[in-house]
């Protein structure tokens, strides 16, 4: 009789690589989630944590989540691509979100958006070549009283007019330069 050849058990190796792809906090969070009887229901929560740390969902990170949470990689990809909030590409240093809600729309968000595209030389969903700005459209930010609004990182700027755009961008360019100097770059 032929000796039974066991397949190489690379479980530990895969696990180690998965842990390396994430941060200890995220791994710990996944482990807590794994205790739940409905562990896979925490997938979206885990992806939120990954994106909060890395800024986007990289292939490597998504595979690691699939392994550690024990859900198929196809499902992770399916979920990551279904929801608007998740992005699969890295973004610029400042993410500019233009609110495309109804209130902003009727109050002229389109013209603010046009001006942003013009000043930055990019379209929605793109990042400037220097990696400083990404331009995105977002569904209602819920601050309709201040329409039209844009959000840069977590800060909301209300009552925007196209003419305010250049100065606002300039301010962020200067902020980046200041931060770089402080970091000794």
């Amino acid at each position: 009789m032929m000796p039974v050849t066991t397949a190489t058990n690379n479980r530990e190796e895969v696990r180690r690589r998965s842990i390396e792809a994430l941060t200890p906090e995220i791994v710990a969070y996944i482990e807590t989630c794994a205790q739940d009887a409905h562990a896979s229901s925490h997938l979206i929560g885990v992806l939120h944590k990954v994106q909060a740390h890395f800024g986007y969902l990289g292939r490597e990170q998504m595979d690691a989540v699939a392994q550690l949470l024990q859900v198929p990689a196809s499902k992770v990809t399916g979920v990551a691509t279904f929801y608007h909030f998740f992005r699969l590409e890295p973004r610029g240093r400042f993410v500019i979100n233009v609110c495309l809600g109804t209130a902003c729309y009727v109050k002229g968000a389109e013209r603010v958006a046009d001006r942003l595209c013009e000043e930055l030389g990019i379209h929605f969903g793109e990042t400037t070549r220097d990696g400083l700005f990404s331009l995105e459209g977002t569904r209602c930010l819920g601050t309709c009283g201040l329409a039209p609004v844009i959000m840069i990182e977590d800060r909301i700027f209300g009552d925007m007019t196209p003419d305010q755009v250049p100065a606002l961008l300039e301010k962020h360019v200067l902020q980046a330069q200041r931060e770089d100097r402080q970091n000794g770059d």
């Binding site: 409905h38 896979s40 229901s41 925490h42 997938l43 979206i44 992806l47 939120h48 859900v71 979920v79 279904f82 929801y83 608007h84 909030f85 998740f86 569904r139």
Partner: peptide, 19 residues
Amino acid sequence: GAGAFVCGEETALIHSIEG
């Protein structure tokens, strides 16, 4: 949630909570 308008629909919302 993660930015899907359809998740306001109750069966879609349930699927979303299920991950």
